[in-house]
């Protein structure tokens, strides 16, 4: 995937739109009604292009200049536009943790934030955790302790687990369980996940 996919030029789209529009004045001053115009079936196809806005994001060390709709969540941007499907959609409502990524080093649910809100932020997904062929110690530990079955919640578990250790919330089994409870594993590999986190925490490697 091209890290900087070509996107329609925002300003150009806007100019075209304004030229074509029969509602020039209203649109120029109160963009809100653009949307109502769309609902009223006037020039909606152009209106949609107009609504894209530019965003710069650093994802796994790659700088992206994007033009996206404000309603696009970070999760959908990653999965549907950037080909970064390692971040999973399990519920889309912040109720499962499968979409966990790090933004400026903090774990968050990427399904509950609009990508435009992350302007200028550094985002790390599961694809950005390993250094080349060298897996992150947490990834190694998950393999060793079999901290997964189907693998679908795994990227979210691992991103969350890394943060859990970094935050200092891996002090005991019970603390790990509490602070990992935002990541559901329906296969039920919880005991093995806790074992993997304990090993990484105990190993004292920098995570």
């Amino acid at each position: 995937m091209n890290p900087e996919p070509e996107q329609p030029n925002h300003d150009e789209a806007r100019r075209t739109f304004l030229k074509q529009s029969s509602l020039l004045t209203a649109l120029a001053f109160t963009p809100g009604p653009v949307l109502q115009a769309a609902a009223a079936e006037i020039d909606e196809k152009v209106a949609a292009v107009f609504e894209k806005i530019p965003v710069r994001l650093d994802i796994n060390g790659h700088k992206h200049k994007l033009s996206i709709e404000p309603r696009t969540t970070l999760l959908d941007l990653l999965r549907e536009q950037l080909g970064l499907t390692g971040t999973k959609k399990g519920c889309d409502y912040g109720q499962c943790g499968a979409c966990t990524v790090h933004i400026d080093g903090k774990r968050v649910n990427s399904c509950l934030t609009f990508a435009v809100m992350q302007e200028g932020k550094e985002i790390t997904t599961i694809e950005g955790l390993a250094k080349g062929d060298d897996l992150h110690p947490m990834q190694e530990a998950f393999i060793k302790h079999d901290g997964f079955q189907c693998g679908y919640c795994t990227p979210g578990q691992i991103m969350s687990a890394v943060a859990c250790v970094r935050e200092g919330h891996a002090g005991s089994e019970d603390e790990i369980r509490e602070f990992m409870s935002g990541n559901i594993c329906r296969c039920g590999a919880y005991s093995n996940i806790v074992a993997a986190i304990q090993e990484v925490k105990g190993g004292g490697q920098k995570v």
């Binding site: 998950f142 079999d146 997964f148 693998g151 990227p155």
Partner: peptide, 13 residues
């Protein structure tokens, strides 16, 4: 260890 473990922990699966 699982044969597909690496694919699963790297998000490549």
């Amino acid at each position: 260890n699982r044969v597909d473990g690496r694919l699963k922990v790297t998000g490549a699966a």
